[in-house]
Amino acid sequence: MDRREFIKACSVVLLMQAFAGCRRVTLDTSSSMPSLEDFVNEVKMAASRSKPGFDLVQIPMPSALKQSGASPLNRFGMAIDLDACNGCGKCILACMQENNIPLSSKERRAAGQFMHWIEMRGGTPSMCFHCGDAPCEKVCPTGAATHTPDGLSTMMYKRCTGSRFCGANCPVGARKFNYDDAVKEGLSRRFNSEVPLRSKGVMEKCSLCLQRLQDHKYSHMAQFPGNEWRGTGVETACAGACPKHAIIFGNWLDPASPLVKAAKRKNIYAPAEVAALDPSVVYLRGNR
């Protein structure tokens, strides 16, 4: 190669680089968004690997919380009608879409670990039982796991430092830990703009669709100042998605609530692990 060809080649290379540098889109397409089908498939996979069921014991109907500062008007909860539920798993998908729950990586799926807030146990859905006397909240070192006066066991993600004490102290393993950075790994999809995505190292679990209750409550209070709010008309994503109407959301302290009406007709059960912890989420079975 002579001097002339060398300089020519250098110019060409530089030109190409100049072109490449001015491209508007980068070549990196690694962080793609998962499709809805990916979520559907993961739910099917999880539902097919149902964990063993709970030992259920009969409990009385949940009443007002015993903690100080608890609301005398509202205690939100849910009932899952075991006579109606056929274990289709539609509630899991609806929950993922409502709460922007990420997919799990291949390795975690292989180990049977999913981020789903609702799991199939013995063919029926189970989630956080929102215990009135919640053992998870007692061990949180940062105060990220707290109880609201209206009976929700809530997680404040920005406060969570990921000690995982709460997960270890939950008798039913309802809490899920973000071992991976789901957003960075392209496992997350923002279906619902109203719910923040969780970052790596944060514990999460069923919130009883806290965002729906908050939105409804504050709209109500703004429109009808001074009027009592009982959460009438709110339902969780899973309850709304259940084709058999087997999941019933409502207010335990409101006799007009569909939850109380349904629970009065049936026997109320809770897993033996949480039966003594005053759970807000219960199972219904057998007509009374």
């Binding site: 500062g69 105060g143 707290t146 609201t148 006066p149 404040m156 719910v195 806290l210 908050q214």
Partner: peptide, 9 residues
């Protein structure tokens, strides 16, 4: 209200 769940989600 000053409990966390009043203003945070």
């Amino acid at each position: 209200a000053v409990y966390c769940g009043a203003c945070h989600r």
